[in-house]
């Protein structure tokens, strides 16, 4: 591993957006520390994988302690882990389903941001980018659990942005529109079509386009940009 390269921590790197982002930033000059519940699906000299359930507070603490030893610093954190699954109208959404969204989308983001921000505080610099979704701005029926937890990620990020700004740490959100992933494909063609109809730009975003927003937030010249949300393909 090239110790001179900046370090980016990305959650949920076994598949989907997280994996795509990890591969992108490995090719663009970062050491990447990723994690997922399962084993690594990425092989790269500058990639370090942690088998972690990020909804488990203790596991997150243990993992970040390891990162502190192995990487010594974290320059950028990207919380991309999230639960995407079909759900019903709120009136018939079970408590179990809602809690699953709460744990994966907001509790996991909270734990990882809390622990990694401590490492950044020690260095008095850092960039945190949380991945939400344009669904938080659309209010689409049938997404009460998903959208409300993604909206919570946005609010969490804004509060963190104010708390951490004095120490040179910025916190921002990228809210992707539809992205072609295993998860979005599993929701079916009809859902994908409806999703694209709601977007101002009626095509899926690419991983490179999401990475571009993250690169902007992570750039040294973006030190004055904090608490912001970039909605992709949407006028919100």
């Amino acid at each position: 591993m090239d110790q001179q390269l900046p370090v980016m921590v990305i959650t949920g790197t076994s598949k989907g957006i997280g994996k795509g982002l990890a591969e992108h930033f490995l090719e663009h000059g970062y050491r990447v520390a990723g994690c997922s519940r399962g084993p690594s699906t990425i092989e790269h000299a500058n990639y370090l994988h942690g088998q972690v359930d990020v909804t488990d507070e203790k596991q997150v603490q243990g993992w970040t302690r390891q990162l502190r030893t192995q990487m010594e610093q974290v320059d950028v954190l990207v919380c991309s882990v999230g639960l995407v699954k079909s759900a019903l109208f709120m009136a018939v959404t079970s408590g179990a389903v809602f809690e699953e969204f709460l744990k994966t989308n907001i509790a996991a983001t909270f734990y990882v941001c809390r622990e990694i921000s401590k490492l950044m505080l020690m260095k008095r610099k850092g960039r945190i980018v949380n991945v939400a979704s344009i669904m938080a701005a659309i209010h689409e029926p049938g997404t009460s659990a998903y959208s409300s937890t993604k909206a919570a990620v946005i609010e969490l990020t804004r509060v963190m942005a104010r708390e951490l700004a004095p120490q040179g740490i910025t916190c921002n959100v990228v809210s992707p529109c539809m992205v072609e992933t295993e998860a979005s494909r599993s929701l079916g063609e009809e859902w994908q079509k409806r999703m694209l109809e709601m977007q101002a730009i009626k095509r899926p975003a690419t991983i490179a386009e999401i990475a571009n927003v993250i690169s902007f937030f992570a750039h040294p010249d973006s030190g004055c940009i904090t608490g912001q949300v970039v909605n992709m393909a949407l006028v919100a």
């Binding site: 302690r65 401590k118 505080l121 020690m122 120490q167």
Partner: peptide, 16 residues
């Protein structure tokens, strides 16, 4: 407040 968080993080590391 932020200094206290940094202090606790540093101290946690030292105790570890």
């Amino acid at each position: 407040s932020l200094g206290f968080v940094t202090f606790v993080t540093d101290l946690e590391e030292r105790l570890t």
